[in-house]
């Protein structure tokens, strides 16, 4: 069934339905939207929308590779960026008024940071895991830190560096659905079918 009308709101709901209803524990879902850059006749996958759920136990991986000093410095950097983004967003939004910094002072986890920097990324003609999935019209499912670390795709290696153990890219109409988890999750047709059902639409972002 093709769903002809589609907007940002329903895209968010579909991403949420995909991982909130899953048996497996996914940390996030991202929809990479394809568009054609006219002057170069290239297909580019850019940020469409994302839903961040988080991992079950965020303390599990704490301090694995970096020193305590590095951890503190990195957290300071992340919190500073978050603080700036918060003020930019609340400056744009009319009724954002009573800003407390509680949320910013809380540790910014590796998966939160990975999700956040994903918003700045895009993939051209078959590059990166999402681009490769789109180009080959077939899903890419990478499970295990060794496989992620050994991948030719920088995004997979980056994901591994931020503690993800599974990353999946499933092509759909108009883009690619990506899911990531800090758990080991093996390929299932159930997830593919869900993506096929939820993301078979004609996009209209307004």
């Amino acid at each position: 069934e093709t769903m002809p009308f589609f907007n940002q709101e329903s895209l968010q709901q579909r991403l949420q339905a995909l991982i909130d209803g899953a048996r497996e524990s996914w940390a996030y879902a991202i929809f990479w939207q394809s568009s054609v850059v006219d002057f170069a006749s290239q297909t580019v996958l850019g940020w469409g929308d994302g839903y961040y759920k988080g991992e079950e136990d965020k303390n599990k991986r704490r301090g694995s590779s970096s020193s305590a000093a590095n951890f503190v410095a990195e957290q300071e950097h992340r919190k500073k960026v978050l603080r700036e983004l918060n003020s930019l967003i609340s400056g744009v939004q009319a009724s954002a008024g009573n800003g407390t910094d509680d949320a910013v002072d809380e540790e910014v986890t590796d998966t939160e940071w990975f999700f956040l920097i994903s918003m700045t990324q895009s993939f051209v003609n078959g590059n990166g895991l999402p681009g490769l999935a789109m180009y080959s019209s077939s899903p890419i499912w990478v499970t295990g830190t060794e496989k992620l670390a050994a991948s030719q795709c920088e995004r997979a290696r980056q994901a591994q560096g931020f503690g993800l153990q599974t990353i999946v890219c499933i092509p759909s109409a108009n883009g690619v659905v990506e899911l990531g988890s800090t758990e080991l999750i093996f390929q299932s047709s159930d997830l593919m079918n869900k993506v096929k059902y939820l993301f078979n639409f004609n996009i209209d972002m307004g």
Binding site: Q8, Y52, A103, E106, M119
Partner: peptide
């Protein structure tokens, strides 16, 4: 921020808002 596409801006606002909710409910 005005140069940031609307989709990313909306996603970012939603992410920050949900983060606040997670911290408050923790």
């Amino acid at each position: 921020l005005s140069a940031v596409p609307q989709a990313r801006k909306a996603s970012l606002a939603r992410f920050l808002e949900r983060r606040k909710e997670r911290v408050v409910s923790a």
